[in-house]
Structures are given as structure tokens and as C-alpha cells.
Amino acid sequence: MNENYIVNIVLPVLLTLGAPVVGGLLMGVDRKITARMQSRVGPPLIQPFYDAIKLWNKRPVIASRLQPVLAFSYLGFSLLAFGLLMFRQDLLVIVFTTALADTCLITASLNSKSPYSYLGGRRELLSVLAYEPVLIMAFLSIYMVTGSFLVDEVLAYRMPLLIQLPAVLIALVLVLIVEMKKSPFDVSASGHAHQELVRGVYTEFSGYTMAMLELGHWVKVTLVLSIVTLFWAPNLLIGAALSLAAFFIVLVVDNSYPRLTWRSMIKTTWGVGFILILANIVGLNLMGVI
């Protein structure tokens, strides 16, 4: 067994399987930090895992026969997207794969005939509409600088992306807020909106289906954070620090802004996101870098 084999196959597989664990821990950190910001003690770090295990073991109740299949597909395709990243594949294909996962989640929520879940599903769609173009634009700008969509080549790029694409990173933080369903963009399933939404897109899930959605959600958050890590590719440790910083910023924003309507959400992510990315691209062009 030579070293190449380990780096190219074994490591990515392990990392992919580890994604839910990392994601769960991040969620634990999230709850802990949020609690501290509100001067509370907060739950233990591994609280998300308790939640997931508990949900998995509840008596199975489903809303339609299709629902568990779609819920698992959401998890499976999220993992697939993450796996593609770990195997250092094409960034655009990764976005399209997450779109596939999102579609599974949305279909699962629309398909149980329930007003709250339907409402949540519609809003989830709008969230996708809000973040997807910004994410793709961010990838296109990465391409313009590095000359490739392959993560492999982005990693091999000669200098940290952050130096050339600082504004794009800020736009990615917006994407991260939407992906993590954090205020002010938590329109589809807020943890704090059960008076109006119940559980939004998650309303009709319970027990093991909900557990799979939780896992899928963790994986997706880890995915976006890993993409932020790419911004300091030469040294991934610094990159990880960068993504944790982004994570922290999201939590600060979450704790200081009220929820917006979906219209303001799209206006903000598109307006701010596009302007930042375009300014960055045009700026680089004027400086003659690309």
C-alpha cells in the first residue's frame, strides 16, 4: 500500500464519513457559544448527538411512504457532495449535487400534505434561490483566479485565495448564514419561530427521518465551511481557522439580528453578494491580475 493510495482514496473516504461528526460538534459549539452570548451555561458539547440518537430511536412515524426515502436521499446526496469535495473534484458539480440534495428535502416537505411543512418547503426553495447564485458566482471568481474548477488545482494555487478574493469570502459568509438557517435568513425553519411556522420545512418529520435531516444539515454546513477553508489553501490549518472565524461571525450575526422576510433575504444576498463579488472581479481585472 503506497502513500498515494492513502491520500487519494482512504483519506477522502474517512473525511467524508467523518463529516457528520465534525458537523455535529460544530452544532454543539454553536449552541454553546450562543448560550454564552446570552450569558447562559448552555448544553454540553455533544448535545446534537444526544438529540440525533434520541430521534433515531423514537417510534417511527411518517407522513407519506415517500418521505423516509427522500429524507435519506437528502443525507446521501449531501454526503455525496461532501465526498466530491474531499476527492478534490469539480466545484460546480458540488453545487449541483447540493441542489439535488436540497430538492430531495423540499420534495419531502411538500409531499406530506401539511400546511406548515408546505410553507416551510416553499420558503426553503426561496432560500435556495437566495444562496445558489451567490455560491456559483463565488466559484466562478475562484476559477477566474486559479484557472480551474477542480479543487485539486485550487489547492495547488500559488497563494492564498483570500489575498485576491477578500470580498468573495464575505459573500460566502452570507451563503453560510442561509445554509445554517441562521437569523436574519432563517425563514424556512427557524428554531425560534414556532408560533408562525411550527418547524417549517421540518414540521412533518419525526423520529428517524428527522435524525437523517439533522445529519444532512450538519454535513451541508461542514461543506460550506470546508469551502471557506479553501481560501487559505497553502496551509489548511490557517484555512480551518478562517472558516471557524466565519462560523463565529455567523453566530454573532445570528444573535444580533431579527429574522427578515424572504424578500429582504433575496434582496440582501443578491444585492450585497453580487456587488461584492463583481467588485472583486472587476477590481482584479483593472489591476491586471486576471
Binding site: 417510534r59 417511527p60 411518517i62 411512504r65 426515502v69 429524507a71 439535488l100 401539511s114 414540521t203 423520529g207
Partner: peptide, 25 residues
């Protein structure tokens, strides 16, 4: 993956099963 993932999902749904319940109203 596109074929295998839903198949696992179907298998899982069979294994875990679950009764179909009314929606939350």
C-alpha cells in the same frame, strides 16, 4: 450514487417502517 442512494433509502424505509400519521394541524 443517483441510483444507489434512493435504493438504500427504500431499504431503510422498509426496515424502519413507521405508521402513516395525520399532519400537524
Amino acid at each position: 450514487a443517483f441510483i444507489i442512494v434512493p435504493l438504500i433509502g427504500i431499504y431503510l424505509a422498509r426496515w424502519k417502517g413507521g405508521s402513516i400519521e395525520t399532519p400537524y394541524l
